[in-house]
Simulated scan of single mutants.
Amino acid sequence: MPQQENLSDSNSAGSDPSMFFLTGIPGLEATHLWISIPFCSVFTVALLGNCTLLYVIKTDPSLHKPMYYFLAMLAVVDLILSTTIIPKTLSIFWFNSREISFNTCLVQMFFLHSFFNVESGVLVAMAFDRYVAICNPLRYTTILTNSVIAIIGLVALARPVFIRIPLYVFLRRLSFCRSHVIAHCYCDHMAVVKLACGNTTFNNIYGLFLTFFIVGQDLTFIAVSYVKILRTVLSLASKEEQLKAFGTCISHLCAILIVYTPVVLSSVVHRFGHLVAPHIHVLMSSFYFVFPPMMNPIVYGVKTKEIHSRVRLLFRRKNF
Score class of each variant (00 low, 15 high):
221 F>R: 06
222 I>Q: 01
223 A>M: 09
223 A>P: 00
224 V>R: 04
224 V>L: 14
225 S>C: 15
225 S>D: 07
225 S>M: 06
225 S>T: 06
226 Y>Q: 05
227 V>L: 15
227 V>Y: 12
228 K>W: 10
229 I>W: 02
230 L>T: 13
230 L>V: 07
232 T>W: 00
233 V>S: 02
233 V>K: 00
234 L>I: 02
234 L>W: 03
235 S>F: 04
235 S>L: 09
235 S>A: 12
235 S>V: 05
235 S>M: 06
236 L>N: 00
237 A>I: 07
237 A>Q: 12
237 A>C: 05
238 S>V: 03
239 K>Y: 09
239 K>W: 05
239 K>T: 15
239 K>C: 08
239 K>A: 14
240 E>K: 09
240 E>V: 13
240 E>A: 08
240 E>G: 05
240 E>T: 13
240 E>L: 03
241 E>H: 13
241 E>Q: 15
241 E>A: 14
241 E>S: 15
241 E>G: 07
242 Q>D: 03
242 Q>A: 09
242 Q>E: 06
243 L>M: 13
243 L>H: 07
243 L>N: 10
244 K>H: 14
244 K>G: 08
244 K>T: 15
244 K>R: 15
244 K>V: 15
244 K>Q: 15
245 A>H: 09
245 A>W: 04
246 F>W: 14
246 F>T: 15
247 G>F: 02
247 G>E: 01
248 T>K: 05
248 T>E: 11
248 T>N: 08
249 C>I: 13
250 I>A: 11
250 I>V: 15
250 I>Y: 08
250 I>C: 05
250 I>P: 00
251 S>M: 11
252 H>C: 07
252 H>W: 04
252 H>V: 06
253 L>H: 00
254 C>W: 06
254 C>D: 00
255 A>H: 09
